[in-house]
C-alpha cells in the first residue's frame, strides 16, 4: 500500500499540530512558547497550501500561505517584544512565576 502524497502531508500537519499543542501545555518558558506558536503556525501554513492543492486552487492556497507567514511574523515580533519586557520587569521568563493575576 502506498501513501498518497496529499495524505502524507496531512499526517505531517497533524503531527506538527500535536507537537505544538503538547508544547503549549507543558512549556513554561516564554521564548519556547513563542517557538511553539511558530510550529503551530507553520503547520497551518502547510495546511493552507495543502488545501489549495487538494481543491485544485494551488495558486490561491500558496498566496494566502505566504500572507499568513508575513502576518504571523508581526505577531511573533510583538510577542518577542513583550518577552523582552517581561524579562526586564520580572527578571524571569518562567511563566509559572508570571501568574499574579488569578481568581
Amino acid at each position: 500500500m502506498t501513501l498518497d502524497p496529499l495524505n502524507a502531508v496531512l499526517i505531517g500537519v497533524i503531527l506538527l499540530l500535536a507537537v505544538g499543542f503538547y508544547g503549549l501545555l507543558i512549556t513554561r518558558n516564554l521564548i519556547k512558547i513563542v517557538l511553539v506558536l511558530q510550529i503551530l503556525v507553520k503547520a497551518v501554513v502547510i495546511a493552507l497550501v495543502l488545501a489549495g492543492k487538494a481543491s485544485g486552487q494551488p495558486g490561491l492556497g500558496q498566496s494566502i500561505a505566504a500572507t499568513v507567514i508575513v502576518a504571523d511574523t508581526i505577531v511573533a515580533v510583538v510577542a518577542l517584544a513583550l518577552a523582552v519586557q517581561v524579562r526586564i520587569r520580572f527578571g524571569t521568563l518562567d511563566l509559572s512565576k508570571i501568574s499574579s493575576l488569578r481568581g
Partner: peptide, 17 residues
C-alpha cells in the same frame, strides 16, 4: 470557580483544547 482562574498559561490553553 475562582480556583479555575489559575493565572497559568498552560492551564488556559488546556481550557481551549
Amino acid at each position: 470557580l475562582q480556583k479555575t482562574q489559575t493565572g497559568k498559561l498552560n492551564w488556559n490553553v488546556m481550557g481551549i483544547l
